[in-house]
Design a protein around this nucleic acid. Sequence first.
DNA 1: ACAAACACGC
DNA 2: GACGTACGTGTTTGTA
Length: 880
Amino acid sequence: MNKKLVLVDGNSIAYRAFFALPLLTNDQGVYTNAVYGFTNMLMKILEDQEPSHILIAFDAGKTTFRHEQFESYKSDREKTPPELSEQMPIIKEVLQAFQIKVTRIELYEADDIIGTLSKRGEDEGFDVRIYTGDKDLLQLVSERTHVAITKKGITNVEWFDEAHMEEVYGIPASHIPDMKGLAGDSSDNIPGIPKVGEKTALKLLKEFGNIEEVLNSSEQVSGPKLRERLTEFRDQALMSKELAVIHRESPVEESLSDLEYTGYETNDVRKLFTEYGFNSLMKHIGVDDEEQIEAKERALEEFTFHHEQEITEDMLQSPAALVIESPTENYHHAEIWGLGIVNENGSYTVPMDVALQSDDFKAWLADETKEKYVFDGKKLTVMLGWEGFDVRGIVFDTLIASYLIDPSLSSHDLANIAERREMTSVLLDEEVYGKGAKQQKPEADALNDHIARKTATIWKLQPLLKEELTTNDQWQLFETLELPLALVLSEMELEGVKVDQEQLKQMGVELDERLGQLERDIHELAGEDFNINSPKQLGPILFEKLGLPVIKKTKTGYSTAADVLEKLEGEHDIIPNLLHYRQISKLRSTYVEGLLKVIHGKSNKIHTRFNQALTQTGRLSSQDPNLQNIPIRLEEGRKIRKVFVPSEENWYILAADYSQIELRVLAHMSGDEKLMEAFHEGQDVHTKTAMDVFDVSKDDVTDTMRRNAKAVNFGIVYGISDYGLSQNLGITRKEAQSFIDKYFETYPNVKRYMDESIAYAKEHGYVTTLLKRRRYLHDINNRNFNLRSFAERTAMNTPIQGTAADIIKKAMVDVANTLNDQSLKSRLLLQVHDELIFEVPESELETMKQLVSDLMSQTISLDVPLVVDVEFGKTWYEAK
DNA sequence: ACAAACACGC
DNA sequence: GACGTACGTGTTTGTA
């Protein structure tokens, strides 16, 4: 048998895993990110190496024999964060479950254990493979011993054998301590020689051999300063080298035969993975999805329900939990599988065709006084809407409740919502039905069981979630804003938007022609045919064949993104053609073909779906198709809007948008007089910002000043960093930072408000909007600068963007109610973050212009006016 | 089936 | 000492 000894630097890998992953916790709130990363790495090692022998070495306590030589050894090292220390025992548990030997020795480091065992291994004819993040261990590389150094991420490593050592360092492995002796190592607080870094050290060693020879030949070294330092710090260098030498005769008790690896018990590992929530790792230990689900099914609570072949009086009570089951993601094309009702009388399922034929059921659905608890009422309402049913009386929606309680949760599936509240009453749809191509309808009994469980879960969750909302002071937000909005959105989605299909096709033909011409030109300019849509093919052509300067690289090669191409505009005729090609290509695929694909067969309209429970800020999103990113900035793209037309003769498209709503919200929430002034006086806010920031009069504001001011305003609203701003303006980070500083000097109350937001977040762990929407910022006190900075920017930005979202949502509810109350025919069709799109009969145009503008600007009262611009036209394009 | 690169809106 | 930088959706390519 192949003798292969794998030695792992446990502390190093744990550290790496901890910092590479966000601070995950399992459902008990135990931190698990380092355990997860470590386990992932461990399994990769076992898979890749199939070791015959393996050991994980850990450091012992704080002091080691090296401290006797040099007391400040590793003294500057930051203390291990408690969030990581807590995880070390769990890592040991994992290793135990995997039946892998672990060791540590007092006064020695993991390095020394590894050094000793690798030597013993080599002597006994083993191939040795070492995993670590610490380059010190490279000194052990030999013909039989290879070292893997962790790179970006956790499971990525760079392998060093003798040849690769030569390539990278140009010195033999055994001279790594010599290098440390000269260059030192700030992370271990090894001093080395001041001002000598890795580069210099390598140069010297390549020239003279080892450290002693370098020091002895110091008079031959070029550079007088360096020569002096070599003499002056001679002893320090020698001591540094000694510190870096790994001890290869440490008192390791384990013999090699103790380290023999015979594998693990799947069950032990599975138990542990379940405990810590490592479901994604299950498949790596040969526990497949079905086994997992079976295990879960066995764990489900006992549950009984009645499957009936007719709708009965017992079912149509109030309140009741209601499930209309459909596996179809896009509910405009839903296949309905069944119906579940749970109320005081019990739990029922009924075949859907039976329910659809029942007038009693239809009346119950449409009866506002019959209170219904649901999961995703919008989906339910739209699905039944397509079937000609009206749904009223939804008074609780578990999806929306879960979203409001914590939008940051990665999943608001019913099973997850329940699981978080210690309920084991239901499985995920995916677990029952399978996913993707493997999805299939189960046997009737299993299907009805699942439907009944879902319905019962909603029933049981309702009081819990209501309590949580109340505790969070979010009940009003839920009841008067989000829940009514869900109904408004369902009407918008069901109504759909009419598009001029013929015109869209015509645009497709024209774009095709232009694309063909551009393609020919580009191929000619490149001197060869290639796939222009492939950055992988385009990169080498631009930056190798045509020799254009490389501005930016991506993970996988050259960046060919628009901002890069724009910098190359003057360099080659191919560039403008490429930019144009990209633009046209986007229009054709996403907008022309994309929209044609989603015209609904039954209505000949486009029916998007708004996701009301997704964004972290409270905004909506739109999909299938996304009607919130229809082109507007460039004229060519904007023409797409011409195909969006009213669905009836002599009607108009009316667009009403809030002017600068986020900045107005900021002015209101911060109470900054200077910023409020701009809005009270009805000035152009970017010009006003430029005047204030650059301290000039209105006439002296240059285009550049206004552009900079606008970018800073933009940055404030979106919470971008100095880096983001610098990218936007094509300036350095320093310059961007100084703009931001100036902005805060100019608007001190904005600064104060931002600081208060951060302080609030640090104290409470979340920030809120005007209407009590919440966003938790888990990294707000993180030691990692970037994560913390990001959380801080989010703390500043979310109350602003989120409040703007609150406002337009409230306006939507107001508008929908008023249209209804006044029996107007006009219909709300779309929302695009700060604007509402309607279709309006000619006879209502004047009424609507006034009404919509008034309702939107008065839906909430701020200390600055909310200004609404209203436009209309025969198409969306003309409503500008 | 999934990731990467790119581009559109706010 | 480096982390990776507003959010969301959709398209295409290219690989597993």
